[in-house]
Amino acid sequence: MTEEVVVTGFGVHTAFGRGAQAVRDGVFAGVPAFAAATRFDPTPYRTPMTAAAPGEPVLREVLHDCAHDAVTMAGLNRGAQAAVLVGSAGDWTAVTRFWREREETGLADSVPAHLAQGLADRLGLHGRRLAFTNACVASASALIHGWRLVSSGWAPAAVCAGAYLVEEENHAKFDSGRALAKDGAVRPFSAGRSGLLLGDGVAVLVLESARTARERGARVLARFTGWGIASDAYHVAKPHPEGRGMAAAARQALNRAGLSTVDYVNAHGTGTPLNDSAETNGLRSVLGPSTVVSSTKGTTGHMLEASGAVEFVISLLALLDGVVPPTANYFAPDPACDLDYVTEGPRKADLRQVLSLNAAFGGMNTAIVLEHA
């Protein structure tokens, strides 16, 4: 028997700060979080802009804080049986130092596998501990695998996380690849869009079977009803121009959920010329030309491995609040991007189903369906 999978808790940290209200005040208000980098000297780079919270937070500590918020909301106690799955490349600064200095640094808990191990130990949870490092679909992959563990009965619950904080190494790589927005603004689906910018993102979700949640008396926030994974197999960095991999993942997710349409799509929407037109083509082929779509990366920036988990939280809040978050920084229509991108600001709507999409270099694509509880 397949178990129904539900969401019972979450914690989130973005450039706007910690918690759901910070997301509402920033993402749902359409307020971009971009400013000149302060964690490193940005002067050698084409653009100095990132979306980062103040100070120099430590990745594992921010992850633990969000996990505490999630398990507290879910009422998941120490000693519980729960898998712990983390999508992250780790703390880049600490990991680089770790491999140079090895165990003498004491920074092993910043390596991806150790983030999952350390998180499970700190929460006092018993079960599988897994790390996912497949780039910008890493935390979406963690969520999907968590669904599989719970739905199959292999785990009564799964704590699924994504974590990335802005640092210089990735900023330098994207800058040298000419992928960062030249004008310091991420403009998803807009004419004149010129690239992405990096942003802080950490999110933790508690998934469990609906039966277990009922037995515990836990509040069910939403139902996690569908998912899809597909590959373009087209190019090492470019998406297929027709968005075939994204379309395939979306179709899988809809089929699994028993749906033919959804009320809102939280798109990958990086603000790069190739991604946004390809994603538009893929969505049009699956859902038609009247699809309501927005990208929240115009406010948060691209959170790399954490994107799937943070945007899962954003999709969850859209369902709970009945509000579609806007696509910020939209400048002018692009004939290659012709869907309804919610450019006028937050939009009230009776949302019953939301589709969240993510993609990564190498042609990887994921899709997740959330439905109202």
Rank of each mutant, 00 (worst) to 15 (best):
V95E: 12
R128S: 15
R24A: 12
V6H: 00
H372D: 13
A83M: 09
S139H: 06
S152I: 10
A22P: 12
A163H: 02
A33E: 04
L180A: 08
H114D: 01
R97L: 08
V111Y: 01
M1R: 13
L59C: 05
P44D: 15
T327R: 02
V202E: 02
A203Q: 01
N281G: 07
A179V: 08
A35H: 15
F189G: 01
D340G: 04
A181R: 00
I229W: 07
A142L: 07
H114P: 00
A179I: 07
P273G: 05
A70S: 05
Q252K: 09
L370Y: 02
L107V: 02
V204P: 00
P239D: 12
Q252W: 07
R347N: 08
G79N: 10
H372R: 15
S209P: 02
T261P: 03
W92R: 09
A360N: 07
L274M: 13
V354D: 00
L320M: 10
V310T: 11
E56F: 14
G26W: 01
P289H: 07
Y234G: 06
L221N: 06
V286S: 04
E4F: 01
P346C: 10
T105Q: 08
R102C: 04
R100M: 07
G75P: 04
V111H: 02
H145V: 11
C160S: 06
V7L: 15
E169K: 12
A120T: 12
G217C: 11
E56K: 15
G184E: 07
L180C: 11
A94H: 02
S290G: 13
A80H: 06
A218T: 11
S151V: 07
L119V: 07
V7E: 02
A230L: 14
L130E: 14
L85Y: 02
G184L: 08
L319R: 03
A210G: 09
S176L: 13
R78P: 06
N281V: 04
V265T: 05
S88E: 05
Y264D: 03
D109H: 05
G192F: 03
A142N: 09
F132T: 02
T261V: 09
T14W: 00
F16A: 14
A20S: 14
A203C: 06
T8I: 13
T366L: 10
A179R: 13
A222Y: 02
E167W: 06
V12F: 03
F174I: 11
L304Q: 05
H240S: 15
S307V: 11
A253Q: 04
G282F: 01
Y45D: 14
L85Q: 04
A222W: 03
N170C: 10
D276T: 06
M246Y: 08
L59E: 03
D263V: 08
A367P: 05
E104W: 08
E305S: 12
A359M: 11
L274D: 13
V313Y: 00
A70Y: 00
A309P: 03
G258L: 08
A250T: 14
E3M: 05
A360S: 13
T270E: 09
G19L: 08
N266I: 04
F34D: 00
D91E: 09
A157H: 01
D109S: 05
T2C: 05
